[in-house]
Design a protein around this nucleic acid. Sequence first.
DNA 1: CATCTTATGCTCAAGGAGAGTATAAATGGC
DNA 2: GCCATTTATACTCTCCTTGAGCATAAGATG
Lengths: 318, 318
Amino acid sequence: MARSAQKTRASASGNAITADLVAVLVAVSDGVPDIMTIAGGSALPSGPFEFTHRSLQTALRAWVEAQTGHPLGYVEQLYTFADRGRSGDSKAPHSISISYLGLTREDKVGEGFEAHWHGWYEYFPWEDHRAGAPAFLAKAVAPKLRAWAKSAPSPTLQRERWQRCAITFGLDDRDWNEELVLQRYELLYEAGLIPEAGRDNGRDAPIVPGKPMTADHRRILATGIARLRAKIKYRPVVFELMPSEFTLLQLQRSVEALAGRLVHKQNFRRLIEQQELVEETGAIATDTVGRPAKLFRFRHAVLAERAVAGTKLPLSRT
Amino acid sequence: MARSAQKTRASASGNAITADLVAVLVAVSDGVPDIMTIAGGSALPSGPFEFTHRSLQTALRAWVEAQTGHPLGYVEQLYTFADRGRSGDSKAPHSISISYLGLTREDKVGEGFEAHWHGWYEYFPWEDHRAGAPAFLAKAVAPKLRAWAKSAPSPTLQRERWQRCAITFGLDDRDWNEELVLQRYELLYEAGLIPEAGRDNGRDAPIVPGKPMTADHRRILATGIARLRAKIKYRPVVFELMPSEFTLLQLQRSVEALAGRLVHKQNFRRLIEQQELVEETGAIATDTVGRPAKLFRFRHAVLAERAVAGTKLPLSRT
DNA sequence: CATCTTATGCTCAAGGAGAGTATAAATGGC
DNA sequence: GCCATTTATACTCTCCTTGAGCATAAGATG
């Protein structure tokens, strides 16, 4: 007992570090998924964790509200990062980043805050496949990835690298998997195709379009997008992003905005309705082109069940 | 810009805290899912994080090997906890717990280590439904939960509480959902039915069977079990727990041990085989009752694909 | 050889998912 | 008012998956 138990208790001694909380705060407006940013769009809202707060979430909420004037609604933890060499500024004191995903209805940012919504595809243009795969993927990215794969030391490694590229980016006739946001980002990083990679290892030439961010914030954002894309398929979280009343098409557009791909309209409605997630308000959409649509509201009553039992969204092509 | 940017940068200043790494290390032997423990089975392997390590995972591996003599294989991060009032000893310096799930083939613990494998159902007896729902659930737990629900201030709250109980524990003819491990633990905690709750709020009478653990280690364990139960259904992680050669029944028993419920044998085989996750070794199981079974090995070749494309396991009744 | 136990092959029915057709209800231009 | 256009909504059809059960094979044991 002696040895291990003592080591366990050693946690009470020194070894102080600092921990930052980082928020990926998402909203959707008119088919654009937005994230809250500070510092001119180059960083996510964040701040140090202190034990004056009761919990991590409490601390996060306080920080985000202070920085953006925007209250947090739905929140879930994403991941805790601490790798060295990813900080951008390697002389800075080491710190852990505890990241969270938050969902809100979009709102104007209050006066006096240097916080802005930015479309997340500004940071990940290769992730938007609603109008088909972006042309620059095949034209520019794929060849660079192939070159990177070829640059591996052995033929076996070359093949493995290329297989990885093909799977994550849906090349060689594979399907595009919209959930692999983080894997794609990490791959581009490894291949040195984004500015963040150069910062850390001295390489140059950002080759792939897309706005970079401070430190590893873009990686955290990728983690958040991936989580959200996975989650909307089996939990009714989209509704956190919707106004209180909406048409089924608006709901569909929001899902498509998040997923970065289109959905079969009729099947989408079938699924939503048969799961009894929504109910008609009785009202009908005004200000509309074409036949006006019924307005729906989310049935909060099902939350207890569905939050646990699950939900399904159809996510296919066309 | 001034205001928010300064706040962000404040992270570089003081606010030091400590962070512990905690491991849920899982193995399976003969239909028993085991976890590695220290301190006589009352704690999970853990230790402080220091920045001398390159990453969180590196630090975790070092700690676990030092405490248990057991090297870590597959590892994934679980969750970062920091709620106050869950520490068991509220005068201890506050600390963050970063928890990980590790999978390994079971092995003897080396000499000189106070580490032991314990079946995880010792800590969560209500989670094992392989022989049907444990009798004490309906006989003892359900009435206590109903009493707790009734003790809510308003009729609405009473109904909500009971609905929550019924959903998470599969009462009132609902299906048992084996993934809700954490929710069930939290519910029992809230209802004051487990010793850990008494430690924190002065209540008494542990009423539900199951071994408690130090601090919030049992909560972390619940998180790990829940994650693993969810994950085996769509990622080929079970194989991390299997010996290099195994029969399909052994594989099935391992899945059942983890899921805590039985599986339809023929359908299980159908799924495993059609996904090409395994291949015959050519050998045949000896030391067997009944017709001898073919031995299989995991096809590592599919890892790259399946790690991403997903896998399916049938988890039903009977 | 009868019986027990496990392995393995096959069939069937119900439900779900992907995709397409058809019709309804608005708007704007002429 | 009529037509083209746009969106909403109702159905249908087919294929695949999943849950479940039946039947047979191949060993061990007494």
